[in-house]
Nucleic acid binder design. Structure first.
Length: 454
RNA sequence: GUGGAUGUAGCUCAGCUGGUUAGAGCGCUGGAUUGUGGUUCCAGAGGUCGUGGGUUCGAGUCCCAUCCUCCACCCCA
């Protein structure tokens, strides 16, 4: 057999122990905060039926779904004509019935509908699991990545939005990141489309405005025209595109400028949320950004986006309210709101800004040198006592050269090395070397326990 | 999905307009130091130059294809 190079699929990664402790630090922080606000844990399968996933993320999303080939003779049900016509679109749906989950929100909606009779609404859940997208990988974009979602479903109270803002604020405070929490309301964008007499161009308007940060006013206006909005209507947007100022100033301006019913409702909701959060003395700034759009088309009310202030990494957390996510699964009029932390991007930002605590790898406090069978026996007895005290400790597994064993302890960042040879065993002491200072002295087991206790 | 850049030792990279046995630093192994790591000194191992074709007397270097990674667009976390 030819030797093969070990590789992993494009866009996937191995996570070494050094990386895992940092990733877990992020996951643990997020999990702890969600639990503090009484969100309940949920997991769903990695794969869903394609009927659950298809058509939920737009045409683009369907293309990015990883499909799972049916087991067994998957060609059995294929009709000859399609096969001969090489119609891969048509064939795909016959030979594949399952796909890997694309996000956590749609499986959550499926779960809610499927278990509606067992769920006590309003239902608050958090979910930390990987998702898969057949995207072309780049920095900060992978084919397998984790999402950390929190949603509240079965209530349209804006208190949920406020709570989610607090959660985002808590998480990023704990992680030591300065962020800006941006909020907006899709109804304002709807109102805007109505205002310029192009209600059917709502999605085009949203997608163009979403690029404002990236490409600037003029290019956005160009794009709007390209998307079929006439020049005079685009010009009418000017005061909106130029809107700056403090949160309440923007709110007041829009109240007067945008008289449309839907728009007014959106502004009212923003005002209410700001009223609540303003009284909370949050650590991070909450900014009302009427130009915030977000592409996902199931959002209907509030939308959130969090950006790191000290590093340009795109959004590291986002979310919004959806009024009818469960509708496609047959459960109407259930409103929900949720957020999703982008763990991978948060990781990259924290790595860049060096915000991870140092010494994250869980190393033993003491390692015993292995001198041979008899000595190891004694070391094991000592280790047993240390383990009972909850002291992280280990013995080098092989009777290797001292140098090798010391190097291992040093590289692993172990604080102390314990030496117990014939001499120490007969005198009932342990020679303990401090790996930082290089000092070493003999001590009893009790003294060692005391030394390692703190 | 469209366009562009890249790929040389475990890691980070050098290698001029094609020319003999492909280099460095770090890391690794051994020794100086047989019960002492981190510093120092000495020695050593490790590469079918991403893969497959082609041009050439000769290819790490030029051409084509393919894969990976990166960058922009699309979209997104």
């Amino acid at each position: 057999m030819a030797k093969q190079k070990p590789t992993i699929p494009k866009g996937t990664r191995d996570f070494s122990p050094e990386v895992m402790v940092k990733r877990n630090y992020i996951f643990d922080t997020i999990r702890e905060v969600f639990q503090r606000y009484a969100y309940q844990p949920l997991e769903t399968p990695s794969m869903e039926n394609l009927s659950t996933l298809l058509g939920k993320y737009g045409e683009e999303g369907d293309k990015l779904l990883f499909r799972i080939l049916n087991s067994g003779d998957y060609l059995a049900k294929v009709n000859e004509e399609d096969l001969r016509a090489r119609d891969s679109q048509k064939l795909a749906s016959v030979i594949s019935e399952k796909g890997l989950r694309y996000d956590l929100t749609v499986p959550f909606a499926r779960f809610v509908v499927q278990h509606r009779n067992e769920i006590n609404f309003p239902f608050k859940r958090y979910q930390i699991q990987p998702v898969w997208r057949a995207d072309k990988p780049q920095r900060g974009r992978y084919r397998e990545f984790y999402q950390c979602d929190g949603d509240v479903i079965g209530t349209d109270s804006l208190l949920n939005e406020v709570e989610l803002i607090q959660i985002m604020d808590d998480v990023f405070m704990k992680l030591g990141l300065n962020v800006s929490i941006k909020i907006n309301n899709r109804k304002i964008l709807k109102g805007l489309a109505n205002y310029i007499q192009n209600p059917e161009k709502f999605m085009d308007l949203t997608m163009a405005i979403d690029k404002l940060d990236k490409i600037g006013h003029e290019k956005v206006k160009e794009e709007l025209k390209q998307r079929g909005i006439n020049t005079s209507a685009v010009e009418e947007l000017d005061p909106f595109l130029n809107l700056e100022g403090k949160n309440y100033e923007k709110v007041e301006y829009l109240v007067n400028w945008l008289s449309d019913d839907e728009g007014s409702k959106g502004i009212g909701e923003i005002r209410e949320i700001l009223d609540y959060t303003g009284a909370l003395e949050l650590n991070n700034e909450v900014e009302f950004d009427p130009k915030l759009a977000r592409g996902l088309d199931y959002y209907t009310g509030t939308i959130f986006e969090v950006k790191a202030l000290d590093e340009d990494m795109g959004s590291i957390c986002g979310g919004g309210r959806y009024d009818d996510l469960t509708g496609v699964f047959g459960l109407k009029d259930v409103s929900g709101v949720g957020i999703s932390f982008g763990a991978e991007r948060i990781y990259d930002v924290m790595e860049k800004l060096r915000r991870f605590p140092s010494k994250m790898l869980p190393a033993a406090k003491i390692m015993f040198v292995n001198f041979g069978r008899e000595e190891a026996k004694h070391a094991l007895k000592v280790l047993r006592e240390l383990h009972e005290e909850g002291i992280k400790s280990e013995i080098y597994p092989d009777t290797a050269k001292m140098k090798k064993q010391m190097t291992y302890a040093n590289n692993k960042g172990i604080e102390y090395v314990g030496l117990m040879g014939e001499d120490e065993i007969s005198k009932q002491v342990i020679t303990v070397k401090n790996m930082t200072t290089g000092e070493q002295k003999k001590m009893t087991l009790e003294e060692l326990k005391e030394l390692l206790a703190e």
